[in-house]
């Protein structure tokens, strides 16, 4: 079963069809090896809270069906950055986003763009598992319901839970409360919930930081599976995790300007293997070898 990347449809259609037909599933032949399609083009992105600059000078491209890791020390604006990619920062009072974010060529911050549609296409998994205080089934069904994708709900729920490698553990207790699950299960439920609305991209904001190593390993395996159908951007504190799972890595760091104000900025963005073996910036090398940060 393949889920057609939204890039195969014209973007105007993507944004305007609120309750339009779900993507038709068809067996597509294996795509020939091409240069990866670009999902996000980020140019000179900066986020400001009032006069404070949280993060700036971010320019990078995020490729389709890859895992892009964002690493860096605490407070360097990693989370702030990925929250720009689905306009979650709109919800933070006083936050201003400057620069350009193009999603499949379309300006994400164009006034005509509907943030709710953006977030429906670009799903998000948060640092702490945050299931709703509802049943497992209702958690997964919530997204499809509010997006008027009510057809074959049972199937949708089963598919999402299977994709998140949780189906076998919960299939007999779908009506039970999601809060009764373990932390690792809750996080996979949150992934299933995000997948249920058939997004194109999955943003993961330190998804394993509240989990034990076994649950973390399961999520990492899962990401490897999901890569076939989704584009994934993951923020992580854990450099080994970035090295294990990602195809490309962005390293952000905190800099103090002349007036003593701290802000995050992008130091280096490259293939993960390159970042971890031949980083071109000494700050990157210092961070990954543990000499700083």
């Amino acid at each position: 079963m393949t889920i057609i990347p939204t890039g195969s449809r014209s973007m105007s259609e993507v944004w305007t069809t609120r309750s339009g037909p779900e993507p038709v599933e068809q067996a597509e032949p294996e795509q020939p090896e091409l240069a990866p399609e670009i999902v996000f083009e980020v140019r000179n992105l900066a986020v400001k809270y009032g006069s404070a600059v949280a993060v700036r000078d971010i320019t990078l491209d995020i490729a389709s069906n890859e895992i892009t890791a964002v690493i860096g020390p605490s407070g360097c604006g990693k989370s702030t950055f990925i929250r720009c990619l689905n306009r979650m920062n709109d919800l933070v009072p006083g936050a201003r986003v400057e620069g350009l974010v193009r999603y499949h060529g379309e300006d994400l911050y164009d006034p005509k763009v509907d943030p709710a549609q953006v977030r429906r296409r670009i799903g998000m998994v948060f640092q702490r598992p945050n299931p709703f205080p509802k049943s497992i089934y209702d958690n997964v069904a919530y997204g499809p319901r509010i997006n008027k994708m009510r057809r074959n709900m049972d199937e949708t729920v089963e598919r999402a839970l299977s994709q998140a490698a949780l189906w076998d553990e919960v299939k007999d207790k779908l009506k039970r409360s999601a809060l009764a699950l373990s932390g690792g299960q809750q996080q996979r439920l949150c992934i299933a919930r995000a997948l249920a609305v058939q997004p194109d991209v999955l943003l993961m904001d330190e998804p394993c930081s509240a989990l034990d190593p076994i649950a973390t390993a399961r999520i990492e395996d899962l990401m490897e599976e999901l890569k076939r159908d989704y584009t994934i951007v993951i923020v992580t504190h854990n450099m080994q995790q970035a090295a294990r799972v990602s195809d490309r890595t962005a390293f952000l760091t905190t800099e103090v300007d002349d007036s003593g104000r701290r802000s995050g900025r992008l130091v280096e963005f490259d293939r993960t293997a390159t970042i971890f073996t031949h980083p071109s910036d000494p700050r990157t090398e210092g961070y990954i070898t543990g000499r700083f940060g």
């Binding site: 689905n86 979650m88 919800l91 709710a116 549609q117 977030r119 429906r120 799903g123 998000m124 948060f126 702490r128 945050n130 299931p131 709703f132 205080p133 919530y142 997204g143 509010i146 997006n147 949150c190 919930r193 995000a194 609305v197």
Partner: peptide, 23 residues
């Protein structure tokens, strides 16, 4: 009501009224 729950609803494409009414 925890902010995480609101975030979860917004991140799924929920609008403000939907989020308030359902979560």
């Amino acid at each position: 009501v925890p902010a995480e729950q609101r975030d979860a609803s917004y991140a799924l494409g929920g609008r403000k009224a939907t989020t308030i009414g359902r979560i």
